[in-house]
Amino acid sequence: MSATLSRQRKRIADPAFRWFVTLAGASVFVILAGMVIRTTNDAWPIFQYQGFFSFLTGDQWLAGSSRTDSDFTGTYGAWPFIYGTLVTALIAIVIALPLALCVAFYINQLAPKRLRNPLSYSVEMLAAVPSIIFGMWGFFWLLPNVLRPFLEWLESTFGWINLAGWKPFEGPVFGSSYLAAGIVLAIMILPIITAIVREVIAVNPVDQQHAAYALGATRFEVMRKVVLPSSFSGIVAASMLGLGRAVGETVAVMMLIGSTKSWDGSLLSAGDSMAAHIAARFGEATPETTKALMAIGVVLFLFTMIINIGARLLVWRIGRVSGDAAV
């Protein structure tokens, strides 16, 4: 009676399955590396020609017409597009995050019980609406009816503000502008942030909330001192997802930002963002310009990476202090 515990039947599926999932896992790295290497490689001559630093900071963008990897004729300063991306994404997140927290809090704590599910389904449905819809609605309805009067009011009320040479609300008002694009982006990323924050809040342990109530906390205090701190990493993750969508958003921004290459710091003037500029120009681009657009893509990729790493660090640092369970 020996060897009764040894393998009694052949298993083919096991090793095959293991290989398959290993391959699937490895493909993530292969795709990522392939993308980074290929785009960086294509963009490299432009960085060499222009210099990486002057590519980031220059505010002149003049497309060239060279057909080879040398003899470039253009000037490539991507700062106007970088500024456009940063400013629109920042406006979007600054507006959307507090609103998302409020909506999520309302759905979770204050809304009548029978309204909660319909509300959260609606939010999730909104999160799935394609950005072109937001862009069209923003351009054809929101811009003339709401945004333009609002921008004009901003200009007439705060136009005088001058922060060390930067006049954020200086006219003239065209309608299409950084601020208009930023506001539509905010509306666009609001549902996805809300949906995630709502779920994060919903799984917050009820017994800890009860403990706080039993100490005399009000609903608001329970939210602020118990639910929000322990949901911190989830809220950061939701914001990053929203910010990532805002930074990379192409179509909606293209329709609302005005697409000019000139750079003017005022939030009310038209400009362009990295993603919108690439999308608008690559169809008609010369081989030289294609490389320059690739270079913008590399910078855009770098930005999203920095944002993600920054978020990780933030969660890690604050999580250590607040005892966040997810860290």
Binding site: H210, A211, A214
Partner: peptide
């Protein structure tokens, strides 16, 4: 004040 069935300290 109230003490609950399961110990429920805050994650602090």
């Amino acid at each position: 004040g109230m003490v609950f069935q399961r110990p429920n300290p805050f994650p602090k």
